[in-house]
Every structure is written in C-alpha cells, then in structure tokens.
Nucleic acid binder design. Structure first.
Lengths: 149, 149
DNA sequence: ACACGGGTGGGGAAAAGTGGGGAATTAGGG
DNA sequence: CCCTAATTCCCCACTTTTCCCCACCCGTGT
C-alpha cells in the first residue's frame, strides 16, 4: 500500500517530461512495476496512480451500475482521459499535451503526495485553490488529527 | 506508545540538521525504525512523529472520502506538508527550507517532548507565544485537569 | 587523567534533478 | 508502397543536493 507524502516543485522540460521525486519513488511498491496511470483529477489537477493502486480504483469503478446514466458518464470521463505510462530511463514520466492543458501546467509543476496517489498542479492554480478554501491549515489538523472521542 | 517529555535547546547547523536529544531517542519505540514524519504544527511550530505514531494518524486520513471536496483539501494540506525522514548516522534529522521558514527557525531550536510527538520551535517565537497566553500555568491546570462534571 | 557518550561541524562521494542530441519507431500523404 | 515528418525514447552531460563518514569539543563518571 502506497503512502505518498510531501510537496515538491519541479520543472517540466519542453518535451513535457517531469521527474518523479526520489522520495515518492521510494514509496512505490515493487508490484507496481514502474507502471503508472495518469488521469484527470478533481479541481484542475492530474492524478497519477501506480499500477497496483489503480487496480483497486478500477475495481470500484467496475462496481458502478451500468444502467445509471451518471455512472456511465463518470466512467467514460475517467477512463477516457486515463493513459498509462512507464518511467523513462531517467525516472521521468511524460505528460501529454491534453493533460497539461487540462491542468494548466506549463514549465513548472507542483507535485503533491496524497497517500495512494500523486497529484500534479500548476503552482499558481494551486495557490488560487488554497485561497478559496474556507478551512485553514489549523482547522484541518484539528479535524483530522484530533483523537476520536 | 511513545511518551516524550522534556525541553532542550539545540543548534541547527547551516545544512538544516538538528540532533535528536538522546533522552527523546530512548523513548522512540523500536518499531518506528528510526523513521520520522515532520509536518507543520499548530502555532508556528513543527511536529515530529515517529513512524509508528504517525501510522495511527494516517489511518484517520485514509478514512476521509475521496469524493468529498473538503476531505480532498484536508488530505492535500496535511500530507503536502508532511515529509518523512530518517536519522543520519549521527542521529540527526534534516529540516527542509520550507519547514524552517514556516516555524521561523534559524540556527537555534527549542525541542519539546509532548507525549506522542516532538515539537520544534524558534526560541523567540515560543517565548512570545508563552507571553501571549491569557491563562497562567495554575489557571490552566484548573481548567484542564478538573474532573468533568 | 582518561575513556565515553553526546552534541556540532565540514569534506567528499554518490544520488538526484535538468536539459539536449540523435536513433528508432510511428503516422500520414503522395 | 515509399518517402517524409513527427513523436518517442534512449543515452550522455552537467549542476545541485543529499548523505555518509570522519573529526572535534566538552561535559561526566571512573
């Protein structure tokens, strides 16, 4: 089970390549086999799942009822924009033009480790996103880390 | 279960390294495996959790639902500012530039043991914090330790 | 006095991040 | 079917950061 964490600002070269931070690479389980799935995330970012974590997600999508129109739309969008990719010999992934456009990523990218997935953001967009949140860091910590009653 | 206690003033060298006090190290359980997680804490300080204590917190983060927008913000914020680190061969941890800036730490640090976690403060900021408390030690005791009605 | 444990500092090897050239593969059009 | 253009990907090279190791200092207890 992955447990990505941390925050990194990396550059995207003009071929669309992004190095995967070494600290995150250490958290990738060996069963993932250097294989990743990139897809549209929520809130204008990209999600990257290692193969093994993706498989779990895929199972829950299979569980959606085929007969529900919204479910069909959801799985079409999710899977339609999902591409799998391998790391190159320098441990980088290559982003497609479409994915970069979706997330507004140009030549800098904010990389977040969020347990089972990695997120890629345009730094400015993330700042904007953060600013629009009603909750502050402290309320977050309080809610999440407070020992349950 | 850890039970850190005590107060230490240590130096931070120009590489951002801080020695973990020997007294605190003795309270780290062996299952933590010399692995720690550093994150932003309340009131401009840093929290350090040994791996095993952190795992308990991580469980509650995993409990957050993927589909709730606020939960997504929570896990991004909390995990984004968390980095794990190992002790080096001199039993030191290395602080990132961002963490030091958040806590205002320069070349001296106040280290507090607070049961399951260790806190790092800039000495001056802690003094300020202490001074701004409306309550005294005694009135706090009264409020905190009074048996609940 | 001296060994020992604990805190502090720095040099250097190794790893990580960044960028680009060029061969191999693929796609498309005549 | 072949030629050309574009894309992919492998490899090399350079810079920066990380981390391993050694050395020192200073109390304390023997």
């Amino acid at each position: 089970m992955s447990s990505f964490k941390g925050r990194f600002t990396y550059s995207v070269d003009n071929k669309g390549r992004v190095a995967l931070p070494a600290k995150l690479r250490k958290s990738v389980s060996t069963t993932a086999n250097e294989s990743f799935i990139v897809l549209r995330g929520f809130e204008r970012c990209l999600y990257i799942y290692p193969q093994d974590e993706w498989n779990k997600l895929e199972e829950s999508i299979r569980g959606l009822t085929f007969s529900d129109a919204q479910h069909r739309f959801f799985s079409r969008t999710l899977l339609g924009w999902a591409t799998d990719c391998q790391l190159d010999s320098q441990q980088r992934i290559m982003l497609s033009q479409e994915h970069m456009e979706y997330a507004g990523i140009k030549n800098e990218v904010l990389i977040l480790g969020v347990l089972e997935r990695i997120e890629l953001w345009d730094p400015a967009i993330y700042l904007e996103y953060e600013k629009n949140q009603p909750a502050t860091y402290e309320t977050v910590v309080e809610r999440v880390l407070k020992p349950s009653p």
